[in-house]
């Protein structure tokens, strides 16, 4: 992809807005369509676009495999951890009413935490899958497509 000037310029312009949109979808999921699952995928798409255009090695140096693998455990941990916090506060597993003074405020906190966990897990898994496929040496050359 060394010579595709237009692709490289457009990618540089697009990656930022895609990440911003991912964050919007993540934290606006309570009010409109969206949430952790979609935001995780959109976030991963920005990285994959970068990886396709600028090469996997560049992306891997900035975002090493080890970090990604830790992230997808962290996502599940945040989700299950929220459940255990409510258990320690004396309620049922994943019952958010006890997280704040008023029931619905607790629900808001719980939903934001859980969606964050989902977002991180989905983002990291999608990126790890992309790394795994892209790291293999291809059998078909670029010009054969």
């Amino acid at each position: 992809m060394k010579y595709h000037l237009i692709l490289r310029v457009v990618t540089r312009l697009l990656v930022g807005p895609i990440l911003l949109y991912g964050l919007y979808v993540q934290f606006h999921g309570d009010f409109g369509p969206g949430g952790g699952f979609q935001a995780g995928v959109i976030f991963a798409v920005a990285f994959i676009l970068y990886g396709i255009v600028f090469g996997l090695r560049d992306l891997r140096n900035r975002f090493p495999d080890r970090v990604i693998h830790q992230l997808f455990a962290l996502g599940v941990l945040i989700y299950a951890g929220t459940g255990f916090v409510s258990v320690f506060l004396g309620a049922n597993f994943l019952d958010y009413n006890v997280l704040a003074e008023k029931g619905y405020e607790g629900q808001h906190l719980g939903i934001i935490a859980v969606e964050l966990g989902v977002g991180i897990a989905v983002f990291a898994v999608m990126l790890a899958i992309y790394y795994a496929f892209a790291a293999r040496p291809p059998r078909i050359d670029d010009k054969d497509w």
């Binding site: 999921g29 309570d30 009010f31 409109g32 369509p33 949430g35 994943l94 958010y96 029931g103 619905y104 629900q107 808001h108 719980g110 939903i111 859980v114 969606e115 989902v118």
Partner: peptide, 15 residues
């Protein structure tokens, strides 16, 4: 009443 967020899908999904 219980969750106070407009998107019912998110409420069901996460809570």
């Amino acid at each position: 009443d219980e969750i106070h967020i407009p998107n019912i899908v998110t409420a069901v999904l996460a809570s």
